[in-house]
Nucleic acid binder design. Structure first.
Length: 986
DNA sequence: GCAAGGACGTA
DNA sequence: GTACGTCCTTGCA
């Protein structure tokens, strides 16, 4: 069809509809084209330039005879809008492994949208859908009307659209992709591409597929069986054992994969097909844009084509170098270049295509370049000024945030102000409820010059929830909770503490002050300098406002600076996936768990406290009678003097400091020798512990408003990746003793609910079998054997049937010993046997399981060489003292390193389960809520009627948690039960 | 008033 | 033998 009628709109037979996959184009162009920066300000524009050249060829196709003929009559540039698509709803891991956006690419996205507008072309995006779905829908509709369709993309996910009327075009290779090319790539016709992808999966998009099946095998199978459903239905006929088993076991996963890869062809389009008709670009607007980008050649060509005097047209003022918006776009790349006034030749060149390593090194070098200058901080006192800060943050796409409150508990502390930082030294504090003066006896007045909190939060909220603005915090879980309580749900976010944790766990601390000193060479103002310490400490809202403001703004400033240093290290050190899958998503998950809290029965605890007190009283009477004097049974010092001094019992040991040792193991031994006093002391200590740490302390943690106990889970507290729990610690609630379990019974479900406890069975031993690749252990788990009995049988040649308890107990101690990095000394202690005997056990164990000795030797050697070990999922645990001169320190670090791979891998697995859990429950329309994590156990609160439906979902998420990152050979097993209280659920 | 040591609860 | 957090006493400021 002749291209004279550029303004006809309705799509008809013979029209040519061109659909450009904008997001994919940007990535391809970024990597395929040489880096290019705008000469006057180093703004990266390589992808923009490639894009403009392509559009120009397209719209001029009729004139210059380019490869895009026939000339497009309709054209749309289609972008991905949001991260949250229906695919994420059905499979939260979809595209979860995506690497971070390179920093010199980020600012090009808005520019490419600008470019599309400058060409007067349609720019389409729709929330909830990927660009691919929109393209599929446009293609489907155009095809139905007999139009020819060209999809500009080389993405294999779009190849399913290809047919007689729909072709693809790879702009980088300048090559068309038709039915034949698709067949070449997938070995099947385009209409079977989806089936191939469902089987083969896709590691880039995290589509699981079926293990062991790639594209070739998939194509072959489909050739044989026709289509996916037939294949899955008849999988049992396949000869190859492994392939058959996988197809049967992972059939559901293949069906899930099909849902993920099948493009939606019936999206309700916001912009109808007929509205994307190509109109001649408005030449002056296009030239203004191209001039602002400083694309001289293309500007000239466009000028010639439209016969306009390009010299007479001003560059687009909003986009030109040094102009309003571009300054901000560059700031996103490098927030402080515009103020450091470095000569151009030596200007930081993050914009040039730096390698991740070079960028990280550069950021580290720059970190100390701009000293902290607190005099440049601003105290924001008007809404108008606050809006300006927020506008700036919105434009650059990231902002460091810190909240200031009246206390340390994010569930109780009141928000008193917040600080923002957008560039080094560009930080402000917004006080909201600072008090001062002494107006009246009972109420102090608010200081003047503060924005009413309601108004300030109303403008802060859109920023904190803006999906295109990254919020950066240090220990963000705290601020997330504080803000949640005022109705703000922060997303998306980064956490500098977690960045440090992923990169340097075990090597250095992750608090803000040490991080600031280490990376920025700067010592921030101490909290005590603002609020005092000890008894005289005042809450933040009573501190002098000038001091408070400096302190708060500095926190945001430092956080931003830390982010600039640490974030690039993720890519350069290959830890982006660990951060993205195991750390960052847990912030919100844990925050929600903490906010929910758990219910306790205070009456029961109060009654128990009384019982324990009575028991202690009786024991105390016995104790003083036996000792012949009254003393404090809680004092190890006094007790030691009585036992080993006054009573002169033999067999006493000393602690490292030279005091008498009165630990439970010592007293236990004495009790077995027939001494009555040590037994009474042990009983007394148990009651004392239960009373003070649990029965008395727990009720004091009940939140006045929620009536529940809200523990705090620390994400960055351990070297191995485990969480820790505090205030109160709910990860050490008693379970081993009968008396102790009474405490556990006091953890109860809300009325109408049950608690579900789901725990991994023997997860660390299973991981040992996996990592040390021990076939006999693996087999034992696959067969569901009693693993300790099997170990004993292997070692001692005793049949499992009728095995004496003592034999199994010893094997169990050895198994645990292995996990802990065994030593003859430790095992001897644990089993109360001579060291030589323990050594002989270990020797025999290694003879039976040589793979485990090899695993331990390898781990030791690796740790010595590198100073760290890694878990199955790539988490790094550092042991800087592994090569210490002191042999006992060295040995300790070796044991810790051996343990860390197992403990840490288990920790990674439950983290993965937790990250996926909420979405899985929601998908199953269940209202179960995760309340607690105890290392290998998750506790949920579930409405009575949903218990039976919830358990399988929970179990499946937990058992499949390693997948697809790691395919374990050893099966994971999860036991789950429901009851009214935690003791009976466990 | 605070820090260290000892003891002990959990996985 | 690994990983934590909390309570209590003691000794020093």
């Amino acid at each position: 069809m002749p291209a004279t009628d550029a303004h006809h709109e309705n799509v008809d037979a013979g029209d040519h509809v061109v659909l450009i996959d904008g997001s994919a184009y940007i990535f391809r162009a970024y990597h395929a084209l040489p880096p290019l920066t705008r000469s006057s300000d180093k703004l990266p524009v390589g992808a923009v330039a490639g894009f403009c050249n392509m559009l120009w060829k397209l719209v001029r196709a009729g004139q210059n005879g380019g490869g895009f003929a026939p000339r497009p009559t309709h054209l749309a540039v289609v972008f991905d809008k949001s991260e949250q698509t229906f695919r994420k709803d059905i499979y939260p891991l979809y595209k979860a492994q995506r690497p971070d956006l390179p920093e010199d690419l980020r600012p090009q996205f808005p520019l490419i949208r600008e470019a599309t507008r400058a060409f007067d072309l349609a720019c389409v995006e729709q929330s909830g859908f990927e660009a691919d779905d929109l393209i599929a829908t446009y293609a489907e509709q155009a095809k139905a009307r007999g139009a020819l369709v060209t999809v500009i993309s080389s993405d294999k996910d779009l190849m399913q659209l290809v047919d007689g009327l729909v072709r693809m075009y790879d702009p980088m290779k300048d090559k068309a992709i038709g039915v034949e090319e698709v067949f070449e790539k997938f070995g099947v016709a385009p209409d079977k591409v989806v089936d191939v992808q469902s089987l083969a999966g896709d590691s880039v998009d995290n589509v699981p597929g079926v293990p062991g099946i790639g594209i070739k095998t998939a194509a072959q199978l489909l050739g044989e069986y026709g289509d996916l459903d037939t294949l899955l239905a008849r999988a049992g006929e396949i000869k190859q054992t492994k392939r058959r088993e996988n197809l049967i076991e992972f059939a559901d996963q293949a069906r899930l994969s099909r849902q993920l890869v099948t493009l939606k062809r019936d999206v309700a389009l916001d912009v109808p097909l007929d509205d994307i008709a190509v109109i001649e670009p408005e030449g002056r607007k296009l030239v203004a844009f191209l001039k602002a980008m400083e694309f001289t050649t293309l500007t000239r060509r466009v000028g010639e084509a439209y016969e306009i005097d390009i010299a007479a047209i001003e560059p687009d003022p909003g986009l030109k170098a040094g102009g309003g918006e571009t300054a901000l776009l560059t700031a996103g790349l490098d927030p402080d270049t515009h103020e450091t006034a470095v000569p151009l030749e030596s200007a930081p060149s993050a914009a040039e295509g730096l390698t991740p390593q070079a960028l990280a090194a550069q950021r580290q070098a720059e970190a100390t370049a701009t000293p902290v200058d607190r005099s440049r901080y601003e105290t924001v006192t008007t809404l108008a000024r606050l809006k300006e800060w927020i506008a700036r943050a919105t434009q650059i796409g990231f902002v460091a945030v810190d909240t200031e409150t009246t206390g340390l508990d994010p569930m109780q502390a009141e928000l008193v102000g917040f600080s923002l930082a957008t560039a080094p030294n560009e930080a402000c504090y917004v006080p909201l409820t600072h008090k001062g003066g002494d107006e009246g006896l009972f109420s102090e007045g608010l200081l003047p010059g503060q924005i009413p909190p309601r108004e300030a939060l109303a403008v802060l909220k859109p920023l904190m929830e803006d999906p295109s603005v990254l919020k950066i915090g240090q220990n963000l879980k705290y601020d997330w909770l504080v803000l949640k309580r005022v109705g703000i749900e922060v997303a998306p976010y980064d956490d500098t503490m977690l960045l440090s944790y992923v990169l340097d766990a075990g090597a250095s601390p992750h608090g803000m002050d040490p991080l600031s000193m280490r990376w920025l060479g700067h010592t921030p103002i101490k909290f005590e300098e603002v609020c005092g310490k000890g008894k005289g400490q005042i809450s933040f809202d009573r501190a002098p406002l000038d001091k408070a403001s400096e302190y708060a703004a500095e926190d945001a400033d430092v956080t931003l600076r830390l982010w600039r240093v640490l974030k690039p290290r993720l890519a350069s050190e290959g830890k982006a996936t660990v951060y993205e899958t195991l750390e960052r998503p847990l912030v919100a998950v844990l925050a929600r768990m903490e906010a929910r809290g758990i219910m306790i029965d205070r009456q029961m605890l109060s009654r128990l406290s009384g019982e324990f007190a009575q028991g202690m009283g009786r024991l105390e009477a016995d104790i003083s009678e036996m000792a012949g004097e009254s003393f404090n049974p809680g004092s190890p010092k006094q007790l030691g003097d009585i036992l080993f001094g006054k009573m002169a019992i033999p067999g006493g040991r000393k602690t490292p400091t030279g005091a008498w040792s009165t630990g439970a193991d010592v007293l236990e031994e004495l009790a077995e020798q027939g001494h009555e006093l040590p037994r009474r002391i042990l009983d007394w200590r148990q009651l004392q512990k239960l009373k003070s740490t649990y029965a008395d302390a727990l009720p004091s943690y009940v939140h006045p408003e929620t009536g529940r106990v809200h523990s705090s889970f620390a994400l960055a507290a351990t070297t191995t990746g485990r969480l820790s729990s505090s205030e109160p610690n709910l990860q050490n609630i008693p379970v081993r003793s009968e008396e102790g379990r009474k405490i556990r019974k006091a953890f109860i479900a809300a009325p109408g609910h049950k608690l579900i406890s789901a725990d991994y069975s023997q997860i660390e031993l299973r991981l040992l079998a996996e990592i040390a690749d021990t076939p006999s252990l693996r087999q034992a788990f696959q067969d569901g054997l009693d693993i300790h009995a099997m170990t004993a049988s292997e070692m001692f040649g005793v049949p499992i049937e009728g095995m004496p308890g003592e034999v199994r107990r010893r094997a169990k101690a050895i198994n645990f010993g292995i996990i802990y990095g065994i030593s003859a000394f430790g095992l001897a202690n644990q089993l109360s046997i001579p060291r030589e005997e323990a050594g002989a056990y270990i020797k025999r164990y290694f003879e039976r399981f040589p793979g485990i000795r090899a695993y331990m030797d390898e781990t030791r050697a690796f740790a010595r060489e590198h100073g760290y070990v890694e878990t199955l999922f790539g988490r790094r645990c550092h042991y800087p003292d592994i090569n210490a001169k002191n042999p006992s320190i060295r040995a300790f670090n070796e044991r810790a390193a051996i343990n860390a791979r197992l403990q840490g891998s288990a920790a990674d697995i439950i983290r993965r389960a937790m990250v996926r859990m909420d979405a899985a429950l929601e998908k199953a329309r269940l209202s179960a809520r995760m309340l607690l994590q105890v290392h290998d156990e998750l506790i949920f609160e579930v409405p009575d009627g949903e218990v039976d439906a919830t358990i399988p979902v929970v179990r499946e998420v937990m058992e499949l948690a390693p997948f697809p990152a790691v395919a374990l050979k050893v099966p994971l097993k999860v036991d789950a039960r429901a009851a009214l209280n935690w003791d009976e659920a466990h």
